[in-house]
């Protein structure tokens, strides 16, 4: 299969969120979609203790040439897909650069220390301001809220993938995504997942 053209090689994408949000699922699906386009995808993940509220990151390296380090070097992210706004900031501070873009799910998840009142979570406008300073382009989308309307917060992952596809940065097509859905989930859940994907596409706009 002929490889699709990339705007950077390797293209560095970080998917970030909080344990339990399901970003491992998102990175796997996205990885498979891109692999089906003939690209090499290297995914670095940490999980194991990730179910219990810690920060979770997946690093995706997309290349026409081969495997790259499963850890992206500091300052080298092209795109950050954040399921949680504070996690977007955490990632950008380390991996961001003036050309970095970000898609951010706007619903905060408070760290337990913030719930307990030992620390405070930044106010929405303040957080948005910081994210704006660290990105060249940024989309803030209510992915969890829309996902809950679809029936479960986990659909936020799929909405985010749709949003990413709409940016046109990576060759993610609706057809390839649908094929991956069928492979991963069987026919039963394809329709609602595609609905989530389309919602994401619409949120970023063509």
């Amino acid at each position: 299969m002929a490889a699709a053209k990339l705007m950077h090689d390797p293209y560095n994408l970080i998917i970030t969120g909080v344990g339990g949000q399901g970003n491992v699922l998102a990175s796997r699906m996205l990885g498979n979609v891109l692999t089906s386009q003939g690209l090499w995808v290297t995914i670095g993940e940490t999980f194991g203790a990730s179910q219990r509220g810690g920060s979770v990151m997946s690093h995706l390296r997309v290349s026409e040439q081969g495997s790259w380090s499963p850890q992206i070097p500091a300052g080298k992210a092209h795109m950050v897909l954040a399921l949680e706004p504070l996690e977007a900031l955490r990632v950008l501070v380390k991996y961001g650069n003036p050309r970095a873009k970000a898609i951010v799910n706007s619903r905060p998840i408070l760290p337990v220390a913030a719930i307990a009142g030992r620390t405070s979570y930044p106010a929405t406008e303040e957080l948005e301001g910081m994210l704006a300073q660290l990105t060249a382009q940024r989309w803030s989308i209510p992915a969890t809220d829309r996902a809950m309307k679809l029936g479960a917060s986990i659909f936020a992952n799929i909405i985010m993938i749709g949003a990413l596809a709409a940016t046109g940065d990576l060759p993610v097509s609706r057809e390839a995504f649908e094929a991956e859905l069928r492979r991963a989930l069987g026919h039963a859940k394809v329709a609602v997942n595609l609905e989530a994907y389309d919602l994401g596409v619409a949120m970023v706009g063509q």
Binding site: G19, A49, G54, L89, R90, L92, P111, V112, P122
Partner: peptide, 9 residues
């Protein structure tokens, strides 16, 4: 701000 710990729970 960004590095506030997400302690495992």
């Amino acid at each position: 701000q960004a590095t506030q710990d997400r302690e495992l729970a």
